[in-house]
């Protein structure tokens, strides 16, 4: 039956306008020649030029990318292990605590995670002399801890969907359990692991609150730099920076979308060919 969903579709349009008008406005004003962020003073790209010549911004960006890369890699390894463990082993000592530890960071307010991490690092430094100073290491450790549970959630969900009989088949064909894991399980859940990594990377790259508590002098990530500038108000060079970041993400998502679409079409095509060959 054809039903007109006028109300629903207009809500959809309203929602997307709500999502994108602020971002579009920010992009338009990044090309504003005026120093006053909200008054249009003609077209200019000078804020982009000043952005690229700003060493502080470039350094912060590099530091952010380094932290995000390292923490995403470790968080993916640990998170995947936890996800597989929770999906496959239904009974082991301390499982209840373990599953609680995996969910708690997801719903813990960031402020609390931030102050608890900072007190932990300060007290550890006092009691065992480590960490000597806060910066790259402490920020990375904190990021790993709260991003690994997102990887766990994704991997666990994927594991629960996957067909256990293929693992049993591998074991039946003579593989030891850890070989099954390496040869069968990991390749099957690889897409979930990849999206987990990407999510961990993004979370780390985006974090302000936890970073602001766990960092030390001289280690300013890009979000922290933006945070300190934005607290003082709207400035055109932040508009330019925001535009570049939004643009990068949009292009990345677009490319990922096209690649996935192509792969899907190819798979459908292959299936059709196979079907015809059988028929």
């Amino acid at each position: 039956m054809k039903r007109r969903h006028t109300f629903l579709l207009s809500m959809l349009c309203f929602g997307f306008a709500f999502f994108y008008i602020p971002i579009l406005s920010m992009i338009v004003y990044s090309f504003n020649a005026s120093r006053l962020a909200s008054v249009w003073g003609g077209f200019s790209t000078k804020w982009y030029v000043s952005l690229f010549s700003n060493k502080q911004v470039i350094d912060a960006l590099i530091l952010s990318l380094q932290i995000a890369f390292v923490s995403a890699c470790i968080a993916t390894i640990l998170g995947t292990m936890a996800g597989i463990a929770l999906a496959r082993f239904t009974k082991f000592r301390g499982r209840l605590l373990f599953s609680g530890l995996v969910t708690a960071p997801l719903i813990m307010p960031e402020v609390i995670t931030g102050i608890s991490s900072l007190m932990f690092f300060i007290l550890m430094a006092q009691w065992v002399g480590w960490p000597g100073q806060r910066g790259f290491t402490t920020v990375t450790l904190a990021h790993i801890t709260f991003s690994m549970v997102f990887v766990t959630t994704i991997v666990q969900a994927r594991m629960l969907q996957s067909d256990r009989s293929i693992e049993e088949a591998a074991m039946d064909l003579g593989s030891r359990p850890w070989q099954v894991l390496r040869d069968v399980t990991l390749p099957v859940i690889f897409p979930a692991i990849m999206s987990g990594w990407l999510l961990a990377f993004t979370i780390s790259l985006d974090d302000v609150v936890i970073t602001s508590f766990t960092t030390g002098p001289g280690s300013t990530t890009l979000p922290l730099l933006i945070w300190s500038k934005v607290k003082l108000g709207v400035t055109p060079d932040i508009n330019a920076l925001a535009t570049l970041m939004v643009g990068t993400v949009a292009i990345g998502v677009l490319i990922a979308g096209i690649v996935m679409h192509r792969a899907e079409r190819r798979r459908q095509h292959d299936e059709q060919m196979a079907f015809r060959a059988n028929g």
Binding site: I23, S25, D206, V208
Partner: peptide
């Protein structure tokens, strides 16, 4: 994808975008 896209852009900048819109001028 359009719903998820803002999620991939910086949280801080999404807040910032509204600071630009809400300012009095």
């Amino acid at each position: 994808m359009l719903v998820i896209l803002p999620f991939w852009t910086s949280f801080l900048l999404r807040v910032y975008a509204w600071m630009g819109l809400m300012g009095k001028s």
